[in-house]
């Protein structure tokens, strides 16, 4: 598994959850917001429980922690980005502890994650890459933001 990620998108958004660095390809990062009022969506899946108003656009606020089977936690930042997913380009938002940086996409080698030690569901993880002496977990945006997983998925609390 040594394919490059040049084909996955224009840039990589890296951020931190529970101290761990993650990244996935985006077409654009719109803005990073301080916590704002959110509107809960009744009967929505645990991955997309809320919506927010980002400059007149109603954007779903996604819970990446939930899909990565991490415990719920307060997060200090809301990241609004645009990704080219199977349903076309979409404006989405998620919470993170902090945003590290946006890496311009130059072909990098994807290192497979070791079987042991990876606690995240395998289908969301593409591999990892090394950046400035740190291992960043590369997420599969297509899978991670797929809306339909949620319906069958039991809520983890």
């Amino acid at each position: 598994m040594t394919d490059a990620i040049a084909d996955t998108g224009a840039m990589l958004l890296t951020f931190r959850l529970d101290g761990e660095a993650f990244a996935f390809p985006v077409t654009r990062v719109h803005e990073i917001l301080d916590p704002i009022p959110v509107t809960p969506v009744p009967n929505a899946g645990a991955f997309a429980p809320e919506v927010i108003n980002v400059r007149g656009v109603v954007v779903p606020l996604l819970d990446i922690r939930h899909r990565l089977l991490m415990k719920p936690a307060e997060a200090s930042r809301i990241i609004v980005f645009e990704a080219d997913l199977s349903g076309g380009p979409q404006k989405l938002a998620f919470r993170a502890d902090s945003v590290e940086q946006v890496l311009e996409s130059s072909p990098r080698e994807i290192i497979p994650l070791p079987e042991l030690g990876a606690v995240w569901p395998r289908r969301f993880v593409k591999g990892s890459l090394r950046h400035e002496d740190e291992l960043i977990v590369l997420l599969d945006a297509q899978e991670l933001f797929e809306p339909s997983h949620d319906l069958a998925e039991p809520a983890v609390s």
Binding site: V41, P42, N43, A44, G45, F47, A48, V51, V57, V58, V59, P60, L62, G87, Q90, L92, P147, D150, L151
Partner: peptide, 13 residues
């Protein structure tokens, strides 16, 4: 404003 794919199928919305 239309709902995203995450919420479109929720009955009643």
């Amino acid at each position: 404003k239309s709902l995203s794919a995450y919420h479109r199928d929720i009955p009643g919305l």
